[in-house]
Amino acid sequence: MDRRMVWVPALVILVIALAAAGCMTYPTSSQGSSGPSVPVTDVYTSDQKAVAPVSTAASAPNAGTAETGVVVDQKIVYTAQLTLEVKDVPTAVDALKTIATGREGYLASSSVTTQGETRTAKVVLRVPAAEFEEALAEVKGIGSVQSVATSGEDVTAEYVDLNAQKTSYQNQLTQYNELLKKSVKVEDIIAVQEQIDRVQTSLDRLEGRLRVLNSRIDLSTITVTLKEPAPIGGESGRSIVDTINAGIAGFFGMIELLIIAFLTLLPLIILGGAAYGIYRWRRSKKPEPVVAPAQELQEK
């Protein structure tokens, strides 16, 4: 047998074994592909006169609960609009206030309008979300329900997103404050402080939005429109007092019109009187014709 036919397969096997051993012992990087790489925060030097925004990709939680592992309760904003017919609007407003305070809520606003002999009102109640259904049932009981509409708005995604942004801003502030402690040059201190002010302003606005959203979630809104029934036979006629008041108003209105007419025609009256006076004066200056006695006329 030829020796080359024996050594060639052995040499091939040896090369494959060495290659496999080299792959097994090759050192891996500390930031291998097994995990996500964390972006490195870039900070400009004082020569560049600026500080780059701090990256928060590794610290800010994701808005989705599946990636963050944080379970957030569903956030619902409950609202209701009702129209009720009641016998007495002021009494019904007091009853609504009692319902709200009895459910640990409050009367947010109320307005009463009078039209003829009927009154209407618009009342806004804020009650805890846990008391929404019970409070709504009590509100329906104070009068005859003409219309009702309820809604529940799911704001869970918005709530999670706002909290994630809040955490991101807080992390940025922490990192910028650490940079501020290490800064020595005046340019670096000013640049970092500008970034701190920017992030703090954004954080304050975000917290304001969160407060409003939490208020809508914690306290449900019930808007009630109250109205009294129309008088039997439609609108009632005028009372004697209304008639007298209308007559007095008409009298003074007529006096006002006469005064306006007199003052409007006064220049014409003055000119007419002056012309008539001149005419009378010129006529008085003319000599009167001489009339012969009756006897003389007969003799002639």
Rank of each mutant, 00 (worst) to 15 (best):
Q81R: 13
S215V: 02
Y159C: 10
N245Q: 15
Y279R: 01
V160D: 09
R119V: 07
I189T: 06
I255W: 04
G102T: 05
L136E: 12
L203C: 11
K166M: 13
R282A: 02
I76A: 02
Q295G: 00
D94G: 06
Q172I: 07
S29E: 06
T150R: 14
L265H: 01
R119E: 15
K140Q: 15
L266Y: 03
V224P: 12
Q165D: 11
R3L: 15
K97L: 11
Q172H: 01
T56V: 15
V212F: 10
I232A: 15
Y176S: 08
R216K: 12
A275D: 00
S151V: 03
A19D: 03
V86D: 03
D47Q: 12
E228L: 09
V199A: 11
P289T: 07
E131M: 02
G141E: 10
S239H: 01
L136M: 13
G152N: 12
I255T: 11
L14G: 04
F251V: 15
Y26K: 08
A130I: 04
E299M: 02
P128F: 07
K97Q: 15
V145Y: 05
G143I: 04
V184G: 14
V123K: 13
G102M: 04
N245I: 13
R211T: 13
K300C: 03
S30M: 07
P267F: 08
L297C: 06
N171V: 05
V8L: 14
T41R: 00
E104R: 01
V43D: 05
T79F: 05
Y159F: 14
I16V: 09
E85N: 07
F132V: 04
I99E: 05
L297K: 12
S220W: 08
Q193I: 04
G143M: 07
R216W: 08
A21W: 10
T65R: 02
R216Y: 12
P61D: 10
T150M: 08
D94L: 07
G233K: 02
E296G: 00
Y26C: 05
V199P: 07
S46G: 08
K166D: 15
T174M: 15
V155E: 08
T243H: 09
V93E: 14
I16S: 03
L258N: 05
Y169L: 13
T156V: 01
P36K: 09
G22L: 02
Q81S: 14
K182C: 02
Y176M: 07
Y78S: 15
G277W: 05
D88S: 13
S236F: 01
V40D: 01
E131N: 08
A249R: 14
T174C: 01
V291C: 07
M254K: 08
I189R: 14
A275N: 04
I255E: 03
V72G: 06
L18T: 02
K286F: 06
I244K: 02
A19H: 00
D42P: 02
V70H: 03
L11W: 04
V212W: 09
A57K: 01
V51F: 02
D188K: 03
E67N: 03
L271C: 01
Q31E: 11
G105Y: 09
N214P: 03
I244A: 14
G277P: 01
Q175R: 14
I232C: 06
G105F: 03
E194R: 12
T41V: 06
P287S: 05
